[in-house]
Amino acid sequence: MTIKHTFMLSFLVAGNMIGAGILAMPINAGISGFWPSMLMMAFFSISMFFSGIVLAKEVNKKKDDTFNFPSLYQEHFGVAGKWIASIANLIIFYGLLISYLVGSSKIVLMVFKIDAVFEPLVLLVIFAVFTYIAMSSMSIIKKYNTILMLLLWMAFLVLIYIGSSGIDANRFSHVNWEYLPRAVPMIIAAFVFHPIIPTICRDAKWSGDIYKPIAIGLLIGFVMNTIWLVVAVGVVPEFGHISLNEARLTGMPITLEMSKILKSDLFLIMGTLFAIIAVATSYVSIGMSLKDFSKDILENSLNIYNKWLVFVVAFIPPLIVAYFFADIFLKALSIVGGIGIVLLFGILPTVIYFRKIRSKFAILIASIFLIAFSITFLITLLQTFGMLHLNPFGG
């Protein structure tokens, strides 16, 4: 791969990460505490890179344009593995697209002071624009994505510059280890790039250097998430009328709470631009991956070849859920991160790796990752079914 091609693909990886996750992650992470969250961010960024490389190697071995994760897991775990992967994939893809649509609609409604009666119309417009780009050719998507990423970084730098003036260092001393398990799914959701792996492997012509754009994209995402966490936690208090907990309760992106505290029109404008572009880049990446996934299921499992049916299966269900349930922004991300992503892009790739290694050190490292992913999966499952309640106030 050329340097230009490597960086264009790394922007796709970073764009896949910098979306609703970066808007939601500081909310739960901040309540649990800055330093505990940073520890989890460092650990899970490494573990997600590990699982991503495992999957990229598997995809590269097949060199098949329609090969996707259901087909991959069928090879390793049989028919049951294929359908477990399919269900987990749908949880991830649908959950993320739902959260993107809901989150961006909330931002537009609040920033432009649009009456709630027009919310369905706003949702439909956002859906139409984002989905049109996601359904475009790879060359057009790479072009759009590079431009959007440059605009994203511009807005991000302005936000950091304005936000840094409102940082209160005392807020970094807050620690709530009991609430950290609730923050972990959000942290994992902020570091997922795996759905784009089959697409970038195909675009890279099955190059063995695919780890380069993955590593660069992940590094970009980690740096941006870290800086954003510093500013968000430093500016917004944990509890109160305008706080991280208030954002958690209302399901609003963190940029809106920050704009209330900083009282800066420029921050509000740039925060809106940043949030919309962040969601757009992720929606396009995830939408493109969901399109490939739907095509894999329809063609390779059901022998159905219809591009319009691919569109309907991929994009209409998230639109319907977002239309009727407009208050599930954070809930959708939590389920996506703690159940779908952890199972499909954490536990299963680690099991594949276990089957192929003999080194004791490699077995130890993989065991640590597998235990961490499994604990996260179990805790999120218990929370989802109401069997475990984590109180941000402690006790």
Rank of each mutant, 00 (worst) to 15 (best):
K4W: 12
H5D: 10
M8H: 02
M17F: 09
M17L: 09
P36C: 03
N60C: 06
K62R: 15
F69W: 08
L72N: 06
Q74A: 13
Y94P: 00
G95R: 05
I98P: 04
L101C: 11
M110T: 10
D115Y: 14
T131I: 07
Y132M: 10
I133H: 06
M138A: 07
Y144T: 10
N145G: 01
T146A: 11
S164T: 11
E178I: 12
L180Q: 01
I187S: 00
F191T: 03
P198F: 03
C201N: 15
W206E: 11
D209H: 13
D209F: 15
A215R: 08
G217N: 08
G217T: 07
I220P: 00
V230T: 14
V231Y: 06
L244P: 03
L244S: 08
N245G: 03
L249A: 10
M258D: 00
I261P: 04
M270V: 00
I277T: 07
K291Q: 11
F293A: 02
E299N: 09
E299T: 14
K307Y: 09
V310A: 00
F311E: 09
A322E: 02
G337C: 07
G338P: 02
G340V: 02
R358P: 00
F369D: 09
L370G: 00
A372E: 08
F373P: 04
S374C: 10
T376P: 06
T384G: 04
M387N: 04
H389N: 13
